[in-house]
Computed example of a mutant assay.
Amino acid sequence: MTKLEELTALLANELHDFNKSVERLEKISEQLNTTKIKMDVVEYKTIFVAHQKQMASYINSMERFESRFESKIKEAKIYSTWAVVVFVMAVLFVIILCFLYLYN
């Protein structure tokens, strides 16, 4: 009987400790449910604004580069127009002379 009484006392103590643990968990759960978490986004907002400014400057520089590049492409000519016309006319003149020479 002594062993049975010892086991019963041990079981009673364990149940009592378990009930205390459950009560503590219930209190913690209640605190977690009632706690409201506030996020401080001021620091992130300043980082975001700085990033936006940086991206705007990058976009602006890319647009300036693009416009300069387009103007350079439009201005770039290997040969001037009059030189091309004179060359084509000379080639045609030589071809005509060759035909005249061959058929005469």
Rank of each mutant, 00 (worst) to 15 (best):
V49K: 07
I47C: 02
Y44D: 05
N19M: 12
M62P: 01
R24W: 13
M39G: 06
M62R: 12
I37K: 04
Q54W: 04
F48M: 01
E63M: 13
S29V: 07
N33E: 15
L15P: 00
T35Q: 12
A50E: 05
E26L: 09
D17G: 09
E23L: 10
K53V: 09
I59Q: 11
L15Y: 06
D17R: 09
T35G: 01
A50V: 01
H16T: 07
M62Y: 08
M55P: 02
N33F: 14
A56N: 15
I47V: 05
I37T: 06
T34A: 07
K20T: 13
Y58M: 12
E23F: 10
I47K: 12
A50F: 00
Y44H: 00
S29L: 15
E30Y: 12
I59P: 01
A56G: 12
F18L: 11
T46Y: 02
F18P: 00
F48W: 01
E26K: 11
V41E: 00
V22W: 11
E14N: 10
R64S: 02
E30K: 11
N60H: 11
S29T: 14
N33G: 10
A56Y: 11
E43S: 01
A56F: 15
L32F: 05
L32C: 07
R64D: 05
I47S: 06
D40M: 03
L25C: 14
K53T: 06
E43I: 03
T34S: 05
S57A: 13
A56P: 03
V42L: 00
K36H: 01
L32S: 08
Y44L: 01
F18Y: 15
I28C: 03
V41T: 00
K38L: 02
K45L: 04
E43C: 00
M39W: 00
A50S: 08
S21E: 10
E43N: 05
E26S: 12
N60Y: 11
S21Y: 10
N19A: 14
T34Q: 04
L25Q: 15
E30R: 10
K45H: 02
V42W: 00
E30M: 12
T46M: 02
E63Y: 11
I37N: 06
V22S: 09
V42I: 06
K38V: 05
V22Q: 12
E14C: 02
M55S: 09
N60L: 11
T35L: 08
K38H: 04
Y58Q: 14
I37G: 01
H51L: 03
S21D: 10
Q31W: 14
E14D: 06
Q31E: 15
Y58V: 07
T34D: 09
I59N: 12
T35E: 09
H51A: 07
K20W: 08
E23I: 04
V22K: 13
K20L: 14
K53M: 06
I47Q: 09
N60Q: 10
A50Y: 00
A56I: 15
L15I: 06
F48N: 06
D40P: 01
D17T: 07
Q52G: 04
H16Y: 07
L32E: 08
F18V: 10
N19H: 15
V22Y: 09
